[in-house]
Design a protein around this nucleic acid. Structure first.
Lengths: 391, 391
DNA sequence: AAATTTTGTTAGTCTGCCTAACATAATACG
DNA sequence: CGTATTATGTTAGGCAGACTAACAAAATTT
């Protein structure tokens, strides 16, 4: 994650009391809540709540949006982040699509757009940068004054990402700025797209109930995002979870080569093996991965064999992850990985080779990455608003 | 890490101010310090320091041990943890030796002993449990009243260790209690021995300057300890870093088996390969690992080949670690790993296969594990004293 | 011996929370 | 329908734990 500019909107929450800050954080994180709920959750007394809410309303960081009636007694006031908290723009700069969402810091959707790139981009480069610039410009043109100030722009990249103290030159992350310049005064948060998908599984997806898990993406490319105690593991070079660089092949006499796992486990290699080994009796080989999976589901023996073999390979990969990180839960995602058919075999192999892991299949579709970067952008915005941004 | 009993000495620091607690923590962690130093480090004003130190001295948690004279001005008073902070006993329950240290919470050595087991134990069992019981009993018999209360017993185990919420039955950790019962009222902290070695590298060893790194142990057995932001990564099953269960062999058509890496990378397998492939022209094969290393250092070609090949294998292992965790620094330890001769090759292979990592060789000898569990025991004791023990 | 510098103490203040008591607004009950 | 009960919100007052300012003490330099 990265902050390129630090000249942002004045943080209205620079001088709030600790309780007011914690209330705002809760409102931003969990959406609308009543005063008693907030006080209960944070262990604050009613007088303190009164004072803190008054503080927040005074600077526009909280607004009363209604009242709810319990079974008995007076109605409770319901609040959410106020207009001064502003909004964020989140962009998934993917290799085939650019997805954009504008949302409030409590993640209410204000605007969204999707742009399909004219051609699939293997690497982060000018094509993507250009598309991001266009989509952002279009969004800024449609910005409503009621959205409040733009606090943060978050961009998910198909590239390693390092923070300010890391060696930026060694990643491709700066390529995102090759064709556009983000608006001055608005900080930009960058994050790797697989990490974003992991964040989304945690905040919106199948891993909502777990603060520690790994997200394994298997598709054209392979990757992993590691969440520990609710925080992303990034690593010194932003390379944590870059399982495409596991030593592979590995064994007595094997000669591992950089990036070789991905060339073996990626969808292209899989389909090549499928085509090569396809029995003539079964007719033409599957046209693509979806076709392969469909035929396996339909009961085709050859297809099932290939899918099972692939699931075993994924299981081995997951076992290595468990042996190193022992996350307790692994979420499978990506074009291939998201298919529930793989789950039983992956589970069996991983648990046989290493230690107990639960395996789940991602439920978020194409939106996982945008939702993840949106979460990170909102967190950043809240930090900025409260004057607690980490440098 | 694990706490079996919670009935401990009354925590004298239950009702201290936050500043007093932070001062005590600093005294325990960094040893003797002057008031100005403490105040400076913690950002506390002199009046606050006065009050807090008075609090601590009042309950015996701090003692003035002298004064130091700066170049100018009045002398500054020097403090360290007081008699009420008591002591801890730390035990490395190893497979060949049981090492024990009694020390104050600021890690001044009070007493130490080493017991050599009559026979090497592959698994944690009654032999080790018995030896631990004996050594602990001998220590308790020699305990000096001046040491203050025994706060915590820490034991490093050659086994996976899970916390209270984990599935204890699935590990062998309880076997440590098969032949001895720790004194009632004294909490016991258990930790895996490789994790302890990692902690020691951080607190006393070559990784003092890094809060994030991995410690890779290569010897009879192989293992890894992962330190992230100064905290051990344990994992859901206490299996984080259990690289003996990486999927291996791994490759197109390979059939991985549980625990196979250890059977390939461990010293026994290495020496078997060395003996098998030893050219008759070179005379009798090396008797043991130390012999192999000595011959390699002396320039023997066959020995060098085997050592280089092993270093390449270790490099591949490290590369997998870097691809998953990207720690930035890997410390090599263990009977084989600690040999500096491996370093260049490991560094070359790891950096070629994955991402930039610094590789260092452990400098702590046999004491690494005791020192690590001592650090953990002291941390636990401090938490207990301050009434902040995590359950 | 006086000036300077650092350390430690005393006095007073301020912030941010709390508890206790009261006020308000809803439902439940006779 | 009025009163009891209950939940929510406010007012008043207090207290813990930090701070600043000013002073006192103990070392050095001039």
């Amino acid at each position: 994650m990265d902050r390129l500019q630090d000249r942002s909107e004045p943080s209205p929450g620079g001088a709030l009391t600790a309780s007011a800050k914690s209330i705002f954080r809760l409102l931003a994180g969990r959406g609308p809540a009543t005063r008693p709920q907030l006080g209960e959750t944070l262990g604050l007394s009613r007088p303190t709540m009164s004072a803190a809410i008054a503080e927040l309303e005074g600077v526009g960081l909280a607004t009363k949006i209604g009242e709810v009636q319990g079974p008995l007694g007076r109605k409770a006031a319901v609040y959410r982040p106020g207009p001064a908290s502003g909004h964020v723009v989140s962009i998934d700069a993917g290799s085939t699509h650019v997805r954009l969402r504008a949302s409030t810091v409590d993640r209410r959707l204000l605007h969204s757009r999707v742009y399909r790139l004219p051609s699939s981009q293997l690497l982060l480069g000018e094509e993507i940068s250009h598309a991001v610039a266009d989509e952002l410009a279009a969004t800024l043109a449609e910005t409503d004054a009621a959205w409040g100030p733009l606090r943060t722009i978050g961009i998910a990249l198909p590239s390693r990402v390092v923070g300010p103290q890391g060696d930026r030159g060694s990643t491709r992350q700066e390529a995102i700025f090759s064709r556009f310049e983000p608006p001055a005064n608005v900080p930009v948060v960058l994050e790797n797209n697989v990490n974003c998908a992991a964040v989304a599984e945690h905040s919106n997806g199948i891993a909502r109930d777990c603060d520690t898990f790994a997200y394994v993406q298997i598709g054209l490319k392979i990757g992993m995002g590691i969440m520990l105690d609710g925080k992303l593991l990034r690593g010194r070079n932003g390379a944590a979870g870059e399982i495409s660089h596991l030593a592979f092949p590995m064994g007595d006499g094997a000669l591992p080569a950089p990036g070789e796992v991905e060339r073996y486990m990626g969808t292209e290699a899989l389909m090549r093996r499928v085509a090569d080994g396809w029995p003539e009796t079964e007719g033409p080989p599957p046209a693509d991965a979806a076709d392969l999976m469909a035929r396996a589901e339909a009961g085709n023996g050859a297809a099932i064999d290939h899918v099972t073999r692939h699931a075993k390979d994924i299981g081995a990969l997951v076992a290595s992850c468990v042996s190193m990180v022992d996350p307790g839960l692994v979420v499978l995602g990506g074009g291939m990985g998201a298919n529930p058919m793989l789950l039983p075999t992956v589970h069996e192999v991983a648990n046989r080779l290493s230690y107990p892991v639960e395996i789940r299949t991602s439920s978020l579709g194409q939106d996982a990455t945008v939702l993840g970067i949106e979460k990170l952008a909102c967190d950043n915005a809240v930090d900025l608003i409260l004057g607690e941004a980490r440098n």
